[in-house]
Amino acid sequence: MLTECWAREYDPVLPPKRNPTADPAPLVVYLDQWCYDHLARDRAGRPKEDHEAGVFAYLRQLALDGRAVFPLSITHYWENWIRRNEDARWDTAVAMAELSGFNTIATGGLGAWESLLAVAARIGKDPAVATPDVLGWGLAHCLGRNQASPLIVNAATGLPARWGDLPSRQRAAIGELERRAAERFELGMLARRDPRMEPLELPPLAAVPDDDRGQRLVDQEHDIRDAIDRWGRTPTNVRAEVERRCLSDTTTVLGLNAACLALRTTYTALLESFNRYQPGEAGQRAWSQFLAAMPIQGRYSEIRVQSHMQANRKRRTSDGRDYFTIASVSPFVDFMVIDRSMWHLTEAARLKEQRGGATILCSLAALRDQLESSLPA
């Protein structure tokens, strides 16, 4: 292992939970899985690239000082869980824990919010839709926005123990014990192991199964490519085919239906509002503008459009997860570091220029430069 096997009596110092009312607010930085693999090596004094030396220590100090938050998403958990090398899982999990403090970002359940934005813009209403706070703490928040953590339970009642009648010093000590127990649980879940408990014969934890989003996307992408090859690979045809698929997705349609009801209109009326456009470029532009008003689906479709502009691009099952993570995280964070292949797609999609959100980078050294220029000394 690159990382030391922590003794049972050792409690690491982790970054604090994000304070949503902090002033100034910390920068929110999302790091792709490969970043944590590299940072685990840098933490051990064996950086993978010379220019990455010292980046882990720099980022960790920002996190400990509360000047930056490095949230984990469900993608991090799943990609760590599927690794067969348990030592590598542990190394990466430790780097993640020491940077994130198990602050997490929820990427699901946002369809209602972005559907409201798009429908309201289309029908000329201003419902003052609040941007959701997607940051929280722990794996439970990633899975369903529930911020659950272990609690000390009264053995007689089975309910969380009440400590109101105890001296403040004892209450603080018990609260600290609960915090440590929660962090140990989170690390064990992230790594699917806890070396401190293995002498007690704790079996490895099973990974939560991933959905088939990746394979479904690959199948859809092949269908789209076949259709484009039939119609002719022009920018107009590529965009029309990809956006048609995105707007006809069952989940998207259900979200738009719900938004129409909330805004006292109907899905039929929404569709009819596009009828005044003639088929062709004018109609396509109207649909493109409507899709662009959806912060996540708009980004997701634009990344796919740019991928299909590359006739020979190979499709991987990981693309679905990468597209989804970029689209659902970048609206809510300040910086995002992804791999170079995906970065080229986001550059072609002009996500930052056209839609705001994260500054997207493809190297840890570039991130350090950006943070040094963004944060006061």
Rank of each mutant, 00 (worst) to 15 (best):
E4L: 04
C5S: 14
V13K: 14
V13H: 12
D23P: 03
P26T: 05
Y30F: 10
D32Q: 06
R43M: 15
G45K: 13
P47Q: 13
L59Y: 00
V69T: 06
V69E: 03
E86Y: 10
W90M: 15
W90L: 15
A95T: 04
S100H: 05
F102H: 05
T104A: 11
A106D: 12
G111Y: 02
W113M: 01
E114Q: 10
K125Y: 02
D126K: 09
A130Q: 14
T131M: 07
W137S: 05
W137M: 04
L139N: 14
C142Q: 15
C142S: 13
A148L: 14
V153S: 06
P195W: 00
M197C: 12
M197F: 11
M197I: 09
E201N: 12
E201W: 02
P203K: 03
V208W: 08
Q215N: 12
R216A: 08
Q220L: 12
W231R: 14
T234A: 05
T236Y: 13
N237C: 03
V238N: 08
V238M: 09
E241Y: 07
L247K: 00
T251D: 15
T252Y: 11
V253L: 08
A259S: 07
T265V: 09
L270H: 00
S273P: 04
Q284T: 06
S301W: 02
S301Y: 02
I303T: 09
Q310C: 07
Q310I: 14
K314E: 13
S318L: 10
Y323K: 00
S330Y: 00
V333R: 00
V333P: 02
A349Q: 03
R350N: 11
K352H: 14
K352C: 06
Q354L: 10
R355C: 11
T359S: 13
L364Q: 09
E372F: 01
A377F: 09
